[in-house]
Design a protein around this nucleic acid. Structure first.
Lengths: 105, 105
DNA sequence: AGCACATGCAAAGAAATGTTAGCAGGTGCT
DNA sequence: AGCACCTGCTAACATTTCTTTGCATGTGCT
């Protein structure tokens, strides 16, 4: 769910696409994509929560704090069977709402 | 987008999982899943629009009209690369909003 | 001090999605 | 006729998701 819901958004899909070409810090990425930094930040947070990207905070030579993001090497295979295999597991107790099947489905 | 957004929903994921076990008609499926027929119908429509399921309207021996649904044999592979390959294509003109990358990404 | 650049967060409004309730139609059986 | 099934639709409401706006922090340079 988490992985799918996260990728089911044009902005986030683009972020992944751009980061696939190399790491970038958020302000830079925002300019490249032509969207506001605030908006990008929200999406980056979701991508990170889903484990699709990761970040490192670095200090540039001139002292600026810059947060670099890069894509995770994920691979999700979606087929009726793979879904059928995972869905039953997210039925009960605490697994019903808000789950992450990343790497499985 | 369409495929991902469609699968990014617990109900629809369950529908796919259940139908992976064989075709079913909607009232039956609704009972099996424990959700209202109206709700199921909406989700089935989206799944069908995304090409993930297909339907056949059949008349039972006793004259009842029954709509059977079955899953499509789809296979979507999600990786940073596959996404990077498709995203650029949905940038311009009419492709920006509401696209379907099924079978590609 | 004032400007340019970097990050981070949250409230509020806008838009998209999901869900329910209620209606319509049809067949066959008692 | 009345009941038990089947399908299909839509208007209204509820909820979630997205986006903007505005403010906070910090650094270095002129």
């Amino acid at each position: 769910m988490l992985t799918l819901a996260t990728l089911a958004n044009p902005h986030r899909l683009r972020v992944v696409a751009v980061l696939a070409g190399g790491r970038k810090y958020v302000s830079q990425l925002a300019r490249d994509m032509g969207i506001s930094r605030a908006l990008l930040q929200v999406h980056l947070k979701k991508l990170e929560a889903a484990g699709l990207v990761s970040a490192q905070l670095e200090i540039s030579p001139d002292g600026k704090a810059m947060k670099f993001y890069e894509v995770t090497r994920f691979a999700v295979h979606l087929t009726p069977e793979s879904i059928a295999a995972v869905v039953p597991e997210m039925t009960g107790t605490d697994t019903a709402r808000g789950r992450d099947e990343k790497g499985t489905v």
